[in-house]
Nucleic acid binder design. Structure first.
Lengths: 195, 195
DNA sequence: AGAGTAACCGAACGATCGGTCGGTTCAAGG
DNA sequence: CCTTGAACCGACCGATCGTTCGGTTACTCT
């Protein structure tokens, strides 16, 4: 059993600092100098823990993507009525987004300038399609209102959920993750579900 | 009457090129070299038309903000029932967002790294508050459902509307601006309005 | 105590950043 | 035709970018 040295950075703990700075300044707007100041170690020391700036980005968006894809593997997302599965996925998306807030925030802001960013965008599209198919299935069951296009509705619902990263702050106890998830489900489904 | 020389850049026509590149690569991820290549003139020539990179940003976000604030001055946004005024503002926000798509897109992505960006964020907050007060008034009238917090609902609705910039492409004729506006109003108000 | 090594540092690398400068091109107006 | 000035250019500026390197510190293990 290796006892960890005290007070020292691991790739993971360094990542949590870096992601905060990335979200505040933007990935491109963040220099390694910014990161070193925020971490309290020298610029060159960062390279002892990670291979460079892009590895930090890759680790961050991977964490977010893994958490999102895990939702689709949950039993409640795989079994039962499509509209029920959709509701579960929507609720869990909000919860995951809040639980992994800084990582998902960063994921939602990548623009595609580097190979890592383009890879992240591609995996995001995969996830979106998986959820869109759920909504399509619910529409085929006749469980959602037919007067709004499925494709359009999917995008608007994703927009509402993803926008949470723009204002939710866990430290300011305005609303818990569950309360936000309830509100989103209310708003989305009282608008979507047939009256 | 001064006849304009043909084929030459004005600050405005240069801006429309620059905003496209800003939106594709991100403001910080865009160098003057990128802009010059996209505009087809040399880097130094850009400085003949505008004072620098930040002026391009300022012009772009100003255009977006002016268009948004103009909505609040429209008669239908100032007179009548609060819930009616709110519906008008929501619909017009979608229309303005689509009409001025690249400029609003850039506005919604500023992070606050420069003075111009912080100024834009401040004006955005002002606008948000003006709309939030409309929703609050509609709630006081008893015209929106009481089981979702006004503050929370405002943010989620803004999130849905603003997310349009992430996927709407005018060239691909999927849905017209009016169709999108209709869908948003349907989704927002069939969830908001008391049954 | 001595060896091994994780953690860290300052200095410097070539590249690129936003921006400046002196000068050239070219079409309009007298 | 000749002057004028808008439009444009290549070369260059100091600063900063992400990254590398040689070396030092400090802790663990024997």
């Amino acid at each position: 059993m290796t006892t960890p040295r005290r007070d020292t950075y691991t790739p993971e703990s360094l990542l949590s600092v870096a992601v905060q700075v990335f979200n505040q300044r933007g990935y491109d707007g963040t220099s390694m100098e910014h990161l070193s100041r925020a971490a309290g170690i020298s610029k060159s020391s960062i390279y002892h823990h990670v291979s460079g700036k892009e590895e930090l980005l890759k680790r961050a968006v991977s964490r977010a993507l893994d958490a999102l894809f895990a939702i689709l593997e949950e039993p409640a997302a795989r079994e039962g009525q499509a509209v029920r599965r959709l509701e579960h996925v929507v609720r869990r998306m909000v919860e995951v987004l809040i639980a992994e807030l800084p990582y998902v925030t960063l994921l939602l802001r990548v623009r595609g300038n580097t190979a890592t960013e383009r890879w992240a965008l591609e995996r995001r599209r995969d996830f979106d399609h998986r959820v869109a198919e759920l909504l399509k299935a619910a529409a085929a069951d006749g469980d959602v209102r037919p007067d709004v296009e499925v494709r359009l509705a999917t995008r608007l619902v994703f927009g509402m959920i993803n926008s949470i990263v723009e204002w939710y702050r866990p430290e300011a106890r305005g609303a818990s993750g569950r309360e936000v998830a309830d509100a989103v489900v209310q708003l989305v489904f009282s608008g979507l579900r047939r009256a």
